[in-house]
Write a protein that binds this DNA or RNA. Structure first.
Lengths: 339, 339
DNA sequence: TTGTACGCGTTATCAG
DNA sequence: CTGATAACGCGTACAA
């Protein structure tokens, strides 16, 4: 594959000029620009990633970092979709994406990447509040954006309004007349889980209802924990359940059935995420629609902005959610066409 | 962050010596090796990725490439798990992973990566038989491993025995006495889909049964196509259905229910993949267990071998599958504990 | 507007 | 066993 030098010889100009053309430097005459471009196209020249990284200190590589017991976590469609959002945005902005999933020596590897200048920035899908990674990234000065709220005032993040959405969907259950509304929470290590629980509490309080600890089960977002949680909850006879993830809702549904009860007649059930499965469940699951893809895209765009201009205050973006009202909550107020 | 030079000064040796220590070159005395290591540890030195890539022509970066309408495809847990396999293997072998998901200008970007020497090799999760990417990679000489069988004799791949597994699970239905066994296939653009269909045919032929075209519906692996396919199939009164993916099986199940029929009493149902959902379905789904994670790991290991020694014949690895017999096929022959 | 010259951090070759 | 020194391919002051 050709190098700058070869293109230069070929067109009778210097390396610098070719470099300028490649980088869209304004200081080059239309005539030579034209000529050089032609040669570049013809020879299929592409600048070498490493050479560029070395010389300019920028590599056009950004890293996506997803910590946590990966093995299981990637089975969640959420992360796949999030990743596809990040990837497609990176692609359309002409950046390469470096993926970090492992746990071994995680912190070490990440700031190795950062400090070396191997990557220009990092999208961190951190689900944990107290993330050593965050501190490492912060102190290394590497531009990064967190997917999911972070309480540290210095970090830029994109998130959805978990609390507000949880409040809304819980309020929806209350509006339908349910009074013993239980919840199965996500892993409390995740900010999103805590926020959704807060939203649940908000709704109950707004209706003047007591918060009953027996009606709150601490899950971890997985289907299995939904089942276990529901089994435990059934002893306290809830008339509705807000599961903090669709996967947990699915597990809960099975358990309700196993107990000989019906959804929504005996127990109303709602979830969170609107994964593809939700609309396919029987009955279709009422849930909160959030776009992981859009989160990924947004995070990447924010990161590129941050890289361009690292100064200024941290950016925070909160993406909207929608209530997807289906049959599982027993509502007749709205309906939704299956897509 | 320190450079080679700084470590050299610090220990009173030359860059070359430090470089040798870093790269485990044998030609360095134990004494200096010791001394240099100490300094490296103390200063937290890490070799610069780009400099190394430039000088050595190897970057320790491998690319994972997943073509196809990503947006939807990544919602399939299969790819997430596959990716986690690739990623964790890359990590434990101390390689970085570059992720390519987009479709725009795909071929262009990939061989840009390859030809530049930006990456040392590529893991290609190609689901398409006639992949321009394959040809591009082949002609560029970039080491690569395909996840999924490839008919081109020159390409190394890892796959599972789709045909054999499909034959086994179909035969299982036959053994249980079903005679009108239908199938919903995957997207025929995927080799795996074709292989599974062949396996289905094999089983029927082994039982001396005719292949009825009305009992074959061409799906595309998605839940939606499972639903649509089942709706169409119901008109021909199958007594059993082999869906080429668990997601399609899930869709089919809903449709069977919607038709007022029961699984397995009226129609036996089996799938393929053993995604987490399978064991949670009601009834639990009989399916073929394949380990996407292991495929990913294996692919990466093969790739590293190939990079080390690009000569020699292509490597092919076929991973085993297991039948996971649950309730959806009505079998009482075996049982399986839910994990 | 264009060219020159230097440096980015490593690896590799070649002397010593 | 160790140390100069030349690439690797590109960006970028600086000069012209």
């Amino acid at each position: 594959m050709p190098t700058l030098e070869e293109i230069a010889e070929l067109t009778g100009v210097s390396r610098s000029t070719v470099s300028r053309v490649v980088n869209n430097d304004s200081r080059v005459s239309p005539a030579t620009r034209e000529k050089v471009w032609e040669a570049i196209q013809r020879k299929g020249y592409r600048p070498n990633l490493h050479a560029r990284g070395l010389a300019a200190g920028r590599s056009n590589i950004v890293a996506a970092v997803i910590p946590g017991g990966i093995s299981n976590i990637l089975a969640d469609p959420y992360f796949g979709v999030l990743l596809s959002g990040i990837a497609s945005a990176a692609d359309s902005r002409d950046r390469y994406l470096l993926l970090s999933l492992s746990d071994v020596d995680f912190k070490h590897r990440v700031d190795e990447l950062a400090q070396q200048g191997a990557v220009d920035g990092v999208v961190l899908s951190s689900s944990e509040e107290d993330e050593p990674l965050t501190r490492a990234l912060l102190s290394s000065g590497t531009p990064f954006v967190s997917v999911g709220r972070n309480s540290d005032g210095r970090v830029s993040y994109v998130d959805v309004d978990n609390r507000g959405a949880a409040r809304k969907i819980t309020a929806h259950l209350l509006r339908l007349g349910h009074r013993r509304v239980a919840t199965i929470t996500g892993d409390p290590i995740a900010t999103a889980a805590l926020d959704r629980l807060d939203g649940y509490r908000d709704a109950l309080e707004a209706y003047g209802l007591p918060i009953r600890e027996q009606l709150i089960f601490e899950g971890d977002f997985t289907e299995a924990s939904g089942r276990v949680g529901m089994r435990s909850l059934l002893e306290h006879h809830p008339d509705a359940v807000f599961a903090a993830s669709d996967r947990m809702a699915s597990g809960a549904l099975n358990e309700i059935r196993a107990g000989g009860l019906r959804v929504p007649e005996d127990i109303a059930l709602v979830g969170f995420d609107d994964i593809p499965l939700a609309a396919e469940m029987d009955p279709p699951l009422t849930t909160v629609r959030q776009s992981a893809k859009q989160m990924g895209e947004t995070a990447l765009e924010m990161l590129l902005d941050l890289i361009d201009d690292p100064s200024g205050p941290p950016r925070r973006v909160v993406l909207p959610t929608q209530l997807a009202v289906r049959a599982s909550c027993g509502s007749k107020l709205k309906s939704e066409r299956k897509e």
